[in-house]
């Protein structure tokens, strides 16, 4: 289980009061609530993901309008905010969930704004009587914030009707219904498996109002992600290195276990290892330039260009 504390502990803003003429200044609310800042961060920090950003913008607008309606006494009920994030690994689901937690906090829909990120193992026990306390423990820690359940479909094992996952599902459904003011649940995973999961557990589908699909990154986006990851650590590609990375991305996508940005991060970790060895073996004096440049040889030595890792070829054969 991972717990993320919001980077900016923003004060909850209740928005501006209705004006004497009975109107609400939505633009002012947008700024003063800090929602503008969070959306700005999202735009700056995340490359690509245009459809996701749109959906989040829409959600924020919905919640701002909901607050305005409440202020002017129009019919409203606490909106259902539980969500599903679907998409392949490495497309930014956890990062976006963090932003979402912050956004919901700024708007006053969760009190504390932290994100608790879990998988089946954090919720489901090993023996009778173990699961309920485990699930409740996680739920208690998530209250006031967002509970992010990655690969949520592993909770449900249709081939084993005595699987303890069912117990966790029941408690989750109950809390998602009865504690809507206390926490927001985000279920995440591959789109197709999530669809099957919702079909077998209609209780979840009915409690989730926002489905957000995360597309895979385009090759060009992954290259920008690679450059930005390197820049954060004071590295950069030279021209040939950049071209090699482009080739790498094209080949890697076709291999098994492609995980978008995560695959890029792993590739860069290995490239830095090779760069270090290369510098060490030359035995020459090194300058800033040499220390911070990733060259084509550091990328091209990857086994990806030889058709992937040996054990992966064997397993996927």
């Amino acid at each position: 289980m991972n717990e993320h504390v919001p980077a900016t502990e923003g004060e909850i803003s209740t928005g501006t009061e209705a004006r004497p003429d009975g109107r609400v200044d939505l633009a002012e609310d947008y700024r003063s609530s800090g929602v503008a800042d969070v959306l700005g961060e999202l735009d700056r920090e995340l490359i690509g993901l245009a459809p996701v950003k749109n959906r989040i913008r829409e959600t924020a607008a919905l919640l701002l309008v909901d607050r305005a309606r409440r202020k002017l006494g129009l019919a409203h009920e606490t909106p259902t905010l539980h969500m599903s994030f679907t998409g392949n690994p490495g497309v930014g689901k956890t990062t976006v969930a963090l932003k979402m937690a912050n956004l919901l906090h700024r708007l006053g829909y969760v009190r504390k704004g932290h994100l608790v990120s879990v998988t089946r193992d954090d919720l489901v026990g090993q023996y009778i009587g173990h699961t309920a306390p485990k699930t409740r423990e996680v739920l208690k820690k998530a209250m006031g914030g967002v509970l992010f359940i990655d690969e949520a479909y592993y909770l449900y094992k249709p081939d084993n009707e005595r699987d303890y996952g069912q117990e966790a599902i029941e408690i989750l459904l109950q809390v998602m219904e009865n504690h809507r003011d206390d926490l927001v649940v985000i279920l995440a995973g591959y789109a197709d498996r999530m669809e099957n999961f919702f079909n077998s557990n209609p209780g979840f589908r009915s409690r989730i109002a926002h489905h957000i699909e995360f597309p895979d990154y385009a090759d060009e986006e992954l290259l920008r992600i690679a450059e930005s990851m390197l820049a954060q650590q004071d590295y950069r590609f030279d021209a040939e290195g950049r071209a090699a990375m482009e080739d790498y991305i094209a080949v890697r996508r076709s291999l098994p276990h492609f995980a978008n940005a995560r695959s890029i991060r792993n590739a860069l970790d290995r490239a830095r290892l090779r760069q270090a060895n290369r510098l060490f073996e030359t035995g020459a004096l090194v300058d800033v330039e040499a220390l911070s440049t990733i060259r084509a040889v550091d990328i091209k030595a990857s086994r990806v260009f030889a058709g992937g890792l040996a054990h992966e070829r064997a397993r996927d054969a």
């Binding site: 998530a142 209250m143 006031g144 914030g145």
Partner: peptide, 17 residues
Amino acid sequence: WGHPMFDLKDAAGVMME
């Protein structure tokens, strides 16, 4: 009634127990 609750962020969890 169970163990003391560690690492909670919000009172709602305590109220549930």
